[in-house]
């Protein structure tokens, strides 16, 4: 025992003092933790933003945008410039592809953020230790997901009235690829130069 320490002067361990001690240590540790987590978060937020922007959001957005732009241009070309009727098979196909593409959301095709998922699991495992479970969900994004959930619900309700089984699934990256192939097939059939469109 080290009797130099002021804490050991009391020969009878005093439960009040122990409690005070614990309270003091956890109070300061927690205060430091709170300040630290805020500072740490601020220190990497921009780095995360830039990497998400350049590595995921921009390339995927461009890919979807390109397909939508081609499909949209194609519909106007076929209907306006070529003056095809609404029943024309090529125009119907172009409209279907455009509609399919417009139904795709970023959340349908965004790759998983494995690091975020892993960290969320760690939080679940030590549930109750930290009170910051929702830290990662930005308000604006949470709002958007809520709206998408609502849209899904409405479309399910609509689907139930139209078809008996109704169960609608969100599009996937495979669906995007299929729409791309259909679009390529259609533009080739029309005779548009592939090298210009698909580089």
């Amino acid at each position: 025992m080290d009797f130099d320490s002021p804490w050991d002067e009391n020969p009878h361990p005093d439960s009040t003092r122990d409690a005070e001690w614990t309270k003091m240590s956890s109070e300061f540790t927690n205060a430091g933790y709170r300040e630290g987590i805020t500072a740490g978060k601020e220190s990497t937020l921009q780095e995360g933003f830039d990497s998400g922007f350049a590595q995921v959001g921009a390339p995927i957005g461009r890919e979807i945008g390109l397909l939508r732009g081609v499909a949209s241009g194609l519909v106007s070309y076929l209907s306006t410039s070529k003056g095809l009727s609404d029943q024309d098979i090529q125009l119907v196909e172009a409209r279907e592809i455009a509609a399919g593409l417009s139904g795709i959301r970023f959340s349908d095709i965004a790759p998983r953020d494995l690091e975020a998922e892993q960290h969320a699991r760690e939080h679940l495992e030590m549930e109750g230790k930290d009170a910051d479970d929702d830290m990662d969900i930005n308000e604006e994004l949470a709002e958007k997901r809520k709206m998408e959930g609502l849209e899904d619900m409405l479309s399910r309700l609509a689907a139930e009235t139209h078809s008996p089984d109704g169960g609608q699934k969100r599009p996937t990256t495979e669906d995007v690829q299929r729409l791309k192939v259909r679009l390529q097939t259609l533009t080739s059939a029309i005779g548009l130069p592939e090298a210009i469109l698909w580089g």
């Binding site: 937020l45 933003f49 921009a58 930005n138």
Partner: peptide
């Protein structure tokens, strides 16, 4: 958490 939230926002904005 900064990296995770930043990435989520950046992905969305870039898209």
């Amino acid at each position: 958490h900064g990296l995770i939230e930043g990435r989520a926002l950046g992905r969305e904005k870039g898209f």
